[in-house]
Amino acid sequence: MIDLATWNLSIPEGSPPATISTPLLVQGFKDQYFNSETGTLFFWAPVTGAKTENAIYPRSELRETYSNGTLRNWLYSAADNKLAATLTVNQVPSSGKIVIGQIHAKDSTSPMVKLEYQYKTYSSTGNIVAKVRMRPDDESGQVITIATGIKLNQSFSYLIHLSPAGVLTINGAGYQWNTNISNTWSDKPLYFKAGVYVQDNTGYVTEGGKVTFSMLDIDHNL
């Protein structure tokens, strides 16, 4: 079973979109956008779904919390910070792009790290692409292709690891990339996110992103 005691969930329904609290998730919350009944985590976000404040795309996405439901934010220097997952991408929108993991920054509209699955129709496979802002004031960031050739419904794993020294390592589907982020991030509270954040907002109600996680784990090792 995947431990949901360190997450809340944003679903693309309501105005503003609903947030499902950590206790409700642990008790077995399920709807059309999320289900954990089988021991895996199923996420669905249609392109027509409601969008969170300042977002232009819908999401069905977990956000890091404490077990009592309080939002958890951390400074990278305080621990060895890891987000690990194994998943399959079951459906993508017409843009082909969904975000499957993030290091977000508190009170910011721009994450430090976005890990995307980008599907290419011509090859019927997808790439794992990291979008990384090296500094908090970096608007565009770097775009790094971590892995290629991943089909829909093919299981793969990723690891986003940010060390206390500011070394960022991203593993995806057996490939690895790393860098040193700027220490100007050192006083910025961060948090992990995971799920499906579709990078598209037009189309039919049946269009969107669908992902199934068989493993999802956060570690902050002192």
Rank of each mutant, 00 (worst) to 15 (best):
G141T: 12
Y122I: 03
I128P: 05
M112E: 08
D107A: 14
E116I: 00
K131T: 09
G141C: 09
T121Y: 05
E139T: 09
L115S: 02
P111N: 10
G101N: 06
Y122D: 06
V132R: 05
I100H: 03
Y117V: 01
H104Q: 05
S124P: 01
S110F: 05
Q118H: 08
K114R: 14
D138P: 09
V143W: 02
I103A: 08
A130N: 11
T125S: 14
V132G: 10
Q142K: 15
V99L: 13
H104Y: 13
T125F: 05
K106N: 13
G141A: 10
K114M: 12
K106L: 15
K120F: 09
K131M: 06
M112K: 07
S124A: 15
R135L: 04
K120E: 15
E139H: 12
M112G: 03
Q142V: 12
G126R: 10
R135A: 10
P136F: 12
K106E: 12
Q142T: 14
Q118I: 04
G126P: 06
T145C: 04
Y122F: 08
M134I: 11
R133A: 05
G101E: 05
A105G: 07
M112R: 07
A130H: 06
T121C: 00
P111G: 11
E116T: 05
S123V: 01
T145Y: 03
Q102I: 03
S108W: 02
